[in-house]
Write a protein that binds this DNA or RNA. Structure first.
Length: 293
DNA sequence: GGGTTAACCTGCGGGC
DNA sequence: TGCCCGCAGGTTAACC
């Protein structure tokens, strides 16, 4: 399940392998994968090259350089990628066989490794989109404009976030998963940050103090930074970096997926509850629903 | 208009 | 062995 740390690992890999190379062919095999794209992906990408890969939350994009690589050219379009739940961006030897769920393959005129979008559940997608100005003088794809900055973004405004989340008057886990409030957090890291902050996800945001929310935000940053350092979280082959390798952070999870196992702080069995059509994992003693928790 | 829910999708594991 | 069902969850359209 790619959340911010996993997407950042992929961004770094794509950036290292793909930047500056000229595209010689585009093979799009699945209509859902480019479903948001209004033009012809092949027509839009043939002959162009990519500038340095960028990311906001779980969205990744490769700015398009229309002509020869020129550091002074300001890209006006980008190839935007969202991995969904099971999407993978792989950098492969052109001779290696097609993956079972290979949906898009991009080859380069230097004959080196190609770029492949593989996705079992087809929740992921990619598209070419125009770049629009952001609030800080930079540019980002228009489809990403409604997404909030992520907690690892140097320009993330903590005070603004804490004010906004309290105004929402909703449950704190619901708010953490709302990408328009703060981006990059999915079910796994939401549960992990809440466990570290000793907060139950069902607590109402307007009843939490600014200090409590600031502490939660610090835990969000900590758990994501640690996961990033370990290459992300992998439960199976569904999440891998561009070389097909899994991360190791699953070994460091304290709550997610540990139903019935002892809490590493107090020893009580971790509970699983249904929440927003998915599962939430928490400690019944450390993370109480009441205001005293 | 903002909060909430269901649908999208495929593979896997458990139960029968 | 094979079938059926539930589960996994990011995003968004539709609903309240």
């Amino acid at each position: 399940m790619p959340e911010l740390p996993e997407v950042e690992v992929v961004r770094r890999g794509v950036d290292a392998w793909v930047t500056g190379r000229s595209i010689s062919s585009v093979d799009s095999r699945h209509p859902r994968t480019v479903r948001r794209h209004v033009g012809d992906l092949r027509h839009d990408l043939l002959g162009v090259s990519f500038a340095c890969a960028s990311r906001r939350g779980k969205y990744l994009w490769l700015p398009i350089l229309e002509g020869r690589v020129d550091e002074h050219e300001r890209p006006e379009r980008a190839l935007v990628v969202h991995l969904g739940m099971s999407g993978q961006l792989l950098v492969q030897d052109p001779q290696s066989p097609a993956e079972k769920h290979l949906h898009v393959r991009i080859e380069f005129d230097d004959g080196g490794r190609d770029l492949r979008f593989v996705d079992q559940r087809t929740f992921g997608w990619l598209m070419v989109d125009e770049l629009v100005p952001d609030s800080a003088g930079g540019h980002l794809p228009s489809v990403v404009a409604h997404i909030a900055r992520d907690p690892l973004d140097p320009q993330f405004d903590d005070d603004h976030f804490i004010t906004d989340i309290r105004l929402r008057r909703t449950q704190v886990k619901r708010a953490l998963l709302d990408q328009t409030l703060v981006s990059g957090i999915g079910n796994i890291y939401a549960d992990e940050a809440l466990w570290r902050a000793r907060l139950h996800g069902g607590r109402q945001t307007e009843r939490l103090s600014r200090d409590r929310l600031s502490d939660l935000l610090a835990h969000v940053r900590a758990v994501m930074s640690e996961a990033l350092a370990q290459g992300g979280t992998s439960f199976d082959s569904l999440y891998v970096n561009v070389n097909g390798e899994s991360g190791y952070f699953v070994r460091s999870l304290n709550a997610y997926g540990r139903e019935g196992e002892p809490c590493l702080r107090c020893g009580r069995p971790i509970r699983r509850e249904a929440f927003m059509n998915r599962s939430s994992f928490s400690c019944p003693r450390c993370q109480r629903r009441g205001p005293e928790g």
